[in-house]
Amino acid sequence: MTTWIAVAALVLAGLAIVLFVLAIRRLLSRQANVTETMLRRYDDRLAGFAQVLTDALATLQSSRPLATLELEEDPEPMVRALELARERTSADGAIALVTGGKGTPIVATVGLSESETNHIARMGFPDYRGARAIEVGFAGDLAAPEGETPVRSGLVMPLLPEDEAQSLLGVLTRDGSRRFSEEDVDGLAALVDKARPPISRALNLREADVVPELDMLTDLLDRQSFPEVLERELLRARLAHYPLALLVIDVDRLTWLNARIGIVAADGVLLELANRLRSVTHRLDYAFRLGGGRFAIVRPGSEGGDASKLYAAIRDELAANPIADAGAVSVSGGIAELEVRDDVDSFVARAEAALTEAKHVRRGSVVVSGAGAGRPKANGTLHEIAPGDVVLEG
């Protein structure tokens, strides 16, 4: 009997141990399930929080106050405005085109090639007909950079008030399925509102500070106007990232010419030379008489090579058509292209130094300061292709 009781006790003890082990395993399994569920819920909540944070940051990025963008203090507000316009509309490129004052065109682009800039600038300004903005499409005939698809469409609106200048700011996309939304229009309009005052002041379109005076003998712009006009054009070139060239020419042996034909006749030579200058320059140029037989031509949108062609045209005109009693008159020239480090004084000084070098080398020749070596090329060169029609050309 005692033996059976002992066996039963052992069986019960074993069963209790088994039940205990099963209970522990069930408890651990349940705990694992609870832990897994909690971790899954934690991951879901963390992912949701991350998405909310991302959306909030995107909203803040797109709607942050434009005053914080420091357009007022930016030295190149037009280019900065283009960068912001492209960023805020997720566009592939942006362009600004302004014509005002003397009619000097200003073209600035971000994300576009020279050929694309040419094509779009050639289209001119749209008729907004009271609309805040208009969407434009392209037939795919624009030559795109290698590896890129052509520009397909764009959204454009006036950059400056109509009473200041013809203008546009446009964002462009290479995605054929992209359609600009009302949010894009609102964002672009808000940007333009903030960008207008600094761009208008920088371009000096509201009220020209410079009222050029004319030289009494030649009717070209006079020496007093030269530094002020040059400073304005230097600023405009830097704002819009287009080149600027200065050509200074001087009549060779003017003292000898005065002695040979007399001062009055020599003044007639200078007057005729001024007329010849007008015949070879175009309406974008500023021509000055600096005094004596020295003249200067400021060429917005031109590089040294283009200014060299202008000098060659002047030289060839004088050689082919002698001036009355003076006979063949030659001129020497010095050319400077605008560089990053230049101010008005250094820009003029480089052109004058090139002129001095040309006279030392050989009268009737031209020297380009620095020869353009090692300098990055500008986006393009502004050329007149027809009366009143100016485009950017590479």
Rank of each mutant, 00 (worst) to 15 (best):
S330V: 12
L235K: 13
A144K: 03
V110C: 04
V79S: 12
L155Y: 08
A208D: 13
Q224E: 09
A265C: 07
L254T: 00
V156N: 10
L234Q: 15
R25L: 13
D306Q: 14
E148D: 15
R375K: 12
V344N: 01
G147I: 06
P65D: 02
Q31V: 07
G327V: 11
V367I: 10
L234Y: 10
E87G: 01
V361A: 13
R363L: 11
F20W: 09
A354I: 02
V192C: 09
V264Q: 11
N321I: 06
A133N: 10
A266Q: 10
G14L: 08
L57S: 09
A266I: 03
F226L: 05
A50G: 05
V280M: 03
L112V: 09
Q31H: 14
G374F: 03
F138H: 09
G140D: 10
D74M: 11
F49V: 13
V344C: 02
V280L: 03
P227C: 07
P212L: 08
S167N: 11
G101S: 10
I106V: 14
V368T: 05
A133D: 05
G388H: 09
S302P: 01
A237N: 07
A240V: 14
I385F: 06
D250E: 08
R88E: 00
A108I: 11
A319D: 13
A139Q: 07
A50E: 09
L160Q: 05
A259S: 08
R236E: 03
N379K: 14
T149Y: 00
D325C: 08
I297V: 15
A371Q: 05
I199W: 02
A313K: 11
I297S: 02
E73R: 15
D345Q: 10
S369G: 08
F138S: 11
A108Y: 01
A8Y: 13
G154D: 07
A133M: 11
A373N: 05
T117W: 00
R283T: 14
G333Q: 00
T255V: 06
A259D: 08
P300C: 07
D186H: 13
E73K: 12
E337H: 01
E182L: 13
G388T: 06
D74N: 15
E148H: 14
D222N: 15
R201E: 04
A312R: 04
I199K: 02
S90C: 04
